[in-house]
Design a protein around this nucleic acid. Structure first.
Length: 419
RNA sequence: GGAAGGAUGGCUGAGCGGUUGAAAGCACCGGUCUUGAAAACCGGCAAAGGGGCAACUCUUUCCUGGGUUCGAAUCCCAGUCCUUCCGCCA
């Protein structure tokens, strides 16, 4: 959410910065509503002042007049309510403004590689895809999931289920013990206002799974990422300076409809309606956002370093970034079967964009109340890490070596082999 | 699901029809003192929005939404959430 004052002060600058998002919108309606809003506010305030003075004077002769003022105020209030709804509808649908150093471009083709790390494994056989490997081991079962649930779900079984759990535990341990994050086990269901706070609503309702509760006025959604629930821990709150930075980590299932991506990655577990993800969230003073973004990104890549998985870091172009982000680094892991890098983490700074939506504030050094900065990043997507391990650690016989750092989490198992 | 109590500023907590935006304490910020810190003392300190270059000023807000009244944190109605007790249950 943007501050209407910023838009009002320099509409053309604001418009230009949204052009980086390839949005050419007409701000006139917004500005017109804003002006009208302020005009009516002034009228209303004058009446209120008058009314206040009458009641203070306790002069009975003026009481009738006060009543008639009340009626006028009622009319104005109704008009204002309507304007406010319209204003907020427009404002809440505007995406965040890309930070200065974000490459401008329409889509992922303008993303820029920042760095590369790790060595790409050489195979003296044709590497298999994760779903071939998993199905041959009888440890990934897509057909069964289709039967019980539907498409884009999977049963992970036996030692791969253990591996999935190990990955998750390993990552959380690194983030809590070495990276200074506090572990959270949050609700997996979020209220409508919580979803609004991080920017999933109102614009992206179609991507969300809504839960049916008895009370129809109280809408609830399965979280599409722990970012939603963790970031909203600061909702409607004023933090003390000494509580910052707040760094949170959670491993949770995520639920996404992924509407519009049908036909993409239909095979395997790259794109599922449900997947586990270890999520990092930082709540910081807004001027520290970009430093924190680098820090967070390093926390994520550290996991890949420890797992000895090759990856690259890219900066997303303005057109490819998420709605709430001002700057995003994606980390892509090497997948031998696809012979390319695939996204395994996405770390974003949202500046004060989300904080403004959810009224998440703190008292700064000068004792002023200001909006916080929020960041979120995957550290990492568990399902995709499983895929990357399957593909990068596969052996010619179809078995899977276990990365050194995961062995303690897997009863010191060396290898996953077919029974 | 049944019964009772409650919701006030960053926090604790008074107020229960008329300068109450709201006592007091804590926290926080500034200052005096101190080599420095602590303690002590003095001062400041709610948010949102409008107007103004600014100093400043106005309006709203005591869970939410209605109502009574010239006037509501205070009275009435509805709802939400919390706490305690009982029942049920992983």
């Amino acid at each position: 959410m943007h501050n209407i004052k910023d838009i009002r002060n320099d509409p053309s600058k604001f418009k230009d910065s949204l052009k980086k998002r390839f949005l050419d919108l007409d701000l006139n309606k917004l500005l017109e509503l804003d002006e009208n809003n302020r005009k009516l506010i002034q009228e209303k305030e004058n009446l209120e002042k008058e009314k206040k003075e009458i009641s203070k004077s306790k002069n009975k002769d003026l009481f009738e007049k006060s009543k008639s003022i009340s009626k006028k105020i009622d009319v104005l209030e109704n008009k204002l309510k309507e304007i406010k709804v319209n204003l907020e509808n427009i404002l809440s649908s505007l995406p965040n403004i890309p930070y200065d150093d974000v490459p401008v471009g329409k889509d992922e083709s303008s993303n820029k590689e920042v760095s590369k790390s790790g060595s790409i494994p050489k195979f003296d056989f044709k590497p298999k895809s994760h779903f071939e490997l998993g199905e041959n081991l009888n440890m990934l079962d897509f057909d069964l999931a289709t039967k019980t649930t539907g498409s884009r779900f999977v049963f992970v079984k036996d030692k791969l289920a253990l591996l999935e759990r190990a990955i998750s535990n390993f990552m959380i341990d690194v983030h809590t013990n070495q990276n200074g994050y506090q572990e959270i086990s949050p609700p997996l269901i979020a209220s409508e206002s919580t979803m609004y706070g991080t920017g999933q609503l109102p614009k992206f309702e179609n991507d969300q799974f809504e839960i049916k509760f008895d009370d129809k006025n109280d809408r609830k959604f399965l979280i599409p990422t722990a970012e939603v629930i963790l970031t909203n821990m600061g909702k409607d709150r004023i933090f003390h300076l000494n509580e910052l930075p707040l760094r949170l980590v959670a491993s949770t299932p995520c639920f996404r409809k992924e509407a519009g991506s049908y036909g993409k990655d239909t095979k395997g577990m790259i794109r599922q309606h449900q997947f586990y993800k270890v999520e990092l969230v930082s709540i910081v003073e807004p001027h520290n956002c970009l430093i924190e973004l680098d820090r967070m990104t390093n926390c994520a890549t550290k996991i890949l370093d420890l797992l000895k998985l090759p990856y690259r870091k890219i900066i997303l172009s303005s057109g490819d970034m998420g709605f709430s982000a001002e700057k995003t680094f994606d980390i892509e892991v090497w997948l031998p079967a696809e012979n390319k890098y695939r996204e395994i983490s996405s770390c974003s700074s949202c500046g004060s964009f989300q904080a403004r939506r959810m009224k998440s504030r703190y008292k700064n050094k000068k004792n002023e109340t200001v909006f916080l900065g929020t960041l979120n990043g995957s550290g990492l997507a568990v399902g995709r890490t499983l895929i990357a391990i399957l593909e990068n650690y596969q052996q010619s016989d179809g078995s899977i070596k276990i990365p050194e750092v995961l062995k303690p989490y897997m009863n010191n198992l060396d290898k996953i082999v077919k029974k």
